[in-house]
């Protein structure tokens, strides 16, 4: 289940970054991957659609949202916890 979340998040981010999933590293930041603010909002939309969750994210203060976007690993962890909450 957890691997599925990770793979799906990476697939979504890779698509935004126009990269192969294998080129998206867990330690990468969105900036490293060349994803700008519009790309970020689109990625979050895609994540919400893929997992049927609500991601608490405000584009005005992306670094201060409850949703940690500091790296791919952080995003995967945050999505995993949202998915777990949904099934709880």
């Amino acid at each position: 289940m957890s691997e599925n979340v990770k793979d799906k998040v990476i697939e979504i981010i890779a698509e935004q970054a126009v990269l192969e999933p294998s080129d998206v590293k867990m330690e990468s930041t969105l900036e490293d991957l060349g994803i700008d603010s519009l790309g970020l909002v689109e990625s979050i939309f895609a994540i919400e659609e893929a997992f049927d969750i609500q991601v608490p994210f405000n584009a005005n203060e992306p670094t201060e949202s409850e949703f940690d976007i500091s790296s791919v690993a952080a995003i995967v962890t945050a999505v995993e916890s949202l998915v777990a909450e949904k099934h709880a």
Binding site: V41, I44, F45, N58, A59, N60
Partner: peptide
């Protein structure tokens, strides 16, 4: 959808503005 809207208030120029 654009994620730029505030849920509580419009606070232009205030450090705690949120959309």
């Amino acid at each position: 959808g654009l994620r730029v809207m505030s849920k509580d208030a419009c606070r232009p120029f205030s450090a705690n503005r949120n959309g």
